[in-house]
Structure formats: structure tokens, C-alpha cells
Amino acid sequence: MKLLITFSRKGGREPVIARIVKETGVLINVEKANIDSMAGEMLIDVPDEDASVVLERMEAAGVSVRVLEDAIVRDEEECIDCGACISICPQEVFSFDPDWRIRLHPGVCVLCGKCVIACPHRALSLQQ
């Protein structure tokens, strides 16, 4: 499960992620991180069955967490099933079904945004 976490660094440089990994033994995969001197945003991936314990610990540590279910959203009215997005996505989120319709596996999306600008029909957007 993908979690988007945001934290402030005002309270010092608490090694939140490292501590949670150590204490819970859950393997957290950091897929994207954007951290500056004041605040940080991180996209992490945790096994579904461990998500609730990680969520709990994060919140206790004062980190705000959002579960990303459909990170990438497709507007079905605009999409014409061309497939231009397929080879652009580093995570192989898109594929054709046997009837040449686009299928999404949004769970593996890392919010890189590449497909959003590559879609000729402006059918894709990132969940805000």
C-alpha cells in the first residue's frame, strides 16, 4: 500500500522512518522523497498487512499520512485508449486488456507525473 507522508522538521531531525522500521520490523520502501530544511514529503510503500501499524506509529510521531489508493486518475470520458501512456510509465501502471482497452494498476504508481504530460488527450491527473 502506498502512503504519502508529510512532516515538518521544526522539531529537529527525528529519524522517524528508521525508528518505525526498527521497532516494527516492517520493511518500508521509500519510492520518492522531497525534503528541504523545513519540511518533507515522502512516498512510501508498505506491505498491505502491515499498513495499519505503520499508519498508527506515523501518526503518533506527528507525521501526517494519506493512503494513496488511486494515485493516478484517468478520466474515462477523455481517454480514447490509444496507449501512449504505456511505454512512458516507469512503473508499468498501464497495459492493454485483450479488447485494446487501457487497464491501470494504480497501486504501483510513484507519482512521477510523466504520463500526465504524455497523454495527448489530457485524460490523466495525479490525485491531489
Binding site: 480514447i80 485508449d81 490509444c82 496507449g83 501512449a84 511505454s87 479488447d99
Partner: peptide
Amino acid sequence: VVRTSSLSSYRMAR
């Protein structure tokens, strides 16, 4: 092995 993408829609062509 390089992935391909179509710009035209085969579903719509059908």
C-alpha cells in the same frame, strides 16, 4: 527490448 506505445487507438479503429 524496448516497449512500444501506440498514439492511435486500435479500439476506436475497430
